[in-house]
Design a protein around this nucleic acid. Structure first.
Length: 101
DNA sequence: CCATTGACTCGGA
DNA sequence: GTCCGAGCCAATG
């Protein structure tokens, strides 16, 4: 692991309910604003081994972009449970739910 | 160890 | 609004 990875994980764990963050935002906080992809990758691999609210992470457009359909639906479901509205495109209102720092 | 991949992002046309 | 190209770098094989 790298400090970057751990930082990303801790940041994600701190995302409160009903809020979301973008990959780029997290990457930036973790030290590399260009490591958005790694953030995504970390989620992909870590979510299998740890409990992370990975579903609170969306891309820069507030849209859920994920290949695995099962996880995709799961993400939307979890967000809705927390009160985040997701439209039929799998997009959330960033202006409203994005966690500002 | 080297090569490929990818839940991304940004800027330009 | 769209499409394209390039950057970035950890994880995987």
């Amino acid at each position: 692991m790298t400090p970057f990875t751990e930082k990303v994980i801790s940041i994600i764990r701190d995302i409160p309910e009903g809020r979301v963050m973008t990959y780029g935002q997290i990457a930036s906080l973790a030290g590399n604003h260009r490591a958005a992809r790694q953030v995504a990758r970390i989620l992909h691999s870590m979510s299998k081994k740890q409990r992370l609210p990975w579903y609170r992470v969306v891309n820069a457009n507030g849209q859920i972009v994920i290949k695995d359909d099962t996880a995709y639906n799961e993400q939307i479901l979890n967000l809705q449970i927390e009160g985040v509205k997701v439209d039929h495109n799998g997009t959330v209102d960033l202006e409203k739910y994005r966690l500002q720092l």
